[in-house]
């Protein structure tokens, strides 16, 4: 986790320095704010990982001498197949098209999207070993 946190914190520091130089040489708002946002984007997860990396024992993937058996066991739960991403994508697209053609497409779109959200939740609760 250490390398991951340093990578993000480096980006954050770079953006902080650049944002400072940019602001004090240009006094331009938009760019300075966006650079500050880049700084925060690196700082929040990077800081979290750094905090954790000092408190956790190294994972098998952080251990240069780990063998495959060290990581044996459950890696995670992976949905084998699901119709809901398709339904949600279609719903999102139809909802977005309401901003071109009027509210009526959103009726269909939101119906599909809400169904998909419910579907995913139910599917996750039912989820189990294949």
């Amino acid at each position: 986790m250490k390398v991951e946190s340093r990578f993000l914190l480096f980006l954050s520091m770079f953006a902080a320095v650049t944002a400072s130089i940019y602001w004090f040489t240009s006094y331009e708002d938009a760019g300075s704010v966006m650079l500050l946002a880049v700084c925060l984007l690196g700082l929040l997860p990077g800081g979290y990982y750094y905090w954790w990396s000092r408190r956790m024992t190294p994972r098998p993937e952080d251990d240069a001498n780990a063998s495959q058996s060290d990581g044996a066991g459950v890696v995670g739960a992976f949905p084998g197949s699901s119709i809901w991403p398709f339904v949600l994508g279609l719903g999102a697209a139809m909802t977005a098209l309401a901003f071109v053609f009027g509210f009526w497409t959103a009726l269909f779109g939101l119906t599909l999207a809400i169904s998909a959200v419910i579907g995913v939740i139910v599917e996750s609760r039912r989820g189990g070993v294949h």
């Binding site: 495959q68 044996a72 459950v74 084998g80």
Partner: peptide, 9 residues
């Protein structure tokens, strides 16, 4: 359907 992926031990 959810698959619990395991690494080969």
């Amino acid at each position: 359907m959810t698959l619990i992926a395991e690494r080969p031990a």
